[in-house]
Design a protein around this nucleic acid. Structure first.
Lengths: 189, 189
DNA sequence: CTTTTATGAATGAAGG
DNA sequence: CCTTCATTCATAAAAG
């Protein structure tokens, strides 16, 4: 399988993603708008499909196998909670704001809020925040990993693999522009 | 904006923000989530408007990254690390040595050693051991307890089609696909 | 080129 | 809080 032959980052050695405050703010607003639109669309579809229980139109793969569904009780093999996209969005935002200090009371509130978008429990929220925090920390560690003397990359007599490292340095080129979500909602203010 | 991220780089009064890889990843994921929502909504809408008695809710897990698989342009998505043969040998040997409890310090050492044979990060090593152990355990699990009068083990309860057709025939008529990540802000200097 | 398999990576949950 | 485990997802590699 060929890799992207178009090297997009061969200009200069170091390439970092730099955004101005203005761009940051614009992007943030756009994402917020996007979130709102999606929520509304989901809600709309829920209304439309109310004529017959469509079951879990759950966005995301929270599908449960219809195996052994005889009877009514569901003890399917899947027990692991999976946040819906909307829930994830909310959680991410809270994490960004709350600076990782989830108090017990806060957990209850969040759970209540997220229940509107799917099945969730307080434990789920708690775990999510804990995991998120731990993961962020670890990412920071890795980000500033001491570059060991990568002297030479032997082996691979031929077939030059572009780069196989995905965790050390920035390798993915983010590319997002102003999503003109729908026609003409771009104006924020 | 939240400047408590510790990313306070006010060097020379430059009003720029440098996104860390983590932030980039979060952003990418969020956008991907929205794109996924939109795709599914479109799909759902198509189903609702075409046939009333659709043979079932179609919740295939289209989890492909719309940012990467968006038809046309290709960015340097995430490439996963692939161990070189030499690295694999070393890893296998270490695994067999009974050092089945790779501590953080050990991980560092191993990473240092392996980096002499190719690009690798601590995360890669960590994941490799985790996966290795889990796989071994899984294999053992399957091997044991196959007989007990109790058959009907689900073995693999997999969804009918875990793979969604890429529809790469360029004949895909979608009203509007994902938020259109065409021209981006590759690098704002 | 398409389908299948092997495996690196992501993540929810549990343990300490 | 931090570490570890189990499960699942995505994709490079292999098979057809």
């Amino acid at each position: 399988m060929e890799q992207d032959e178009g090297n997009n980052n061969t200009n200069g050695g170091m390439f970092v993603k730099v955004m101005t405050d203005e761009q940051m703010e614009v992007l943030r607003k756009q994402i917020a708008i996007y979130a709102t639109i999606c929520e509304q669309l989901v809600d709309l579809h829920k209304s439309l499909t109310s004529h017959h229980d469509l079951g879990g139109v759950r966005l995301g793969n929270l599908y449960s196998d219809p195996l052994v569904t005889s009877g009514g009780h569901k003890f399917s093999g899947r027990q692991r909670w999976t946040p819906t996209p909307v829930q994830l969005q909310i959680l991410e935002r809270l994490f960004e704001q709350g600076n990782g200090t989830p108090s017990k009371q806060k957990i209850k509130e969040i759970t209540s809020e997220l229940s509107q978008h799917g099945q969730i429990s307080e434990t789920n929220v708690y775990n999510w925040f804990q995991n998120r925090r731990a993961r962020s920390k670890r990412k920071q560690q890795v980000s500033s990993a001491p570059n060991n003397g990568e002297s030479e990359v032997e082996t691979e007599v031929e077939s030059p693999k572009p780069q196989q490292n995905s965790a050390s340095t920035a390798d993915d080129n983010m590319c997002f522009q102003n999503p003109n979500v729908s026609s003409g909602i771009s104006s924020v203010d």
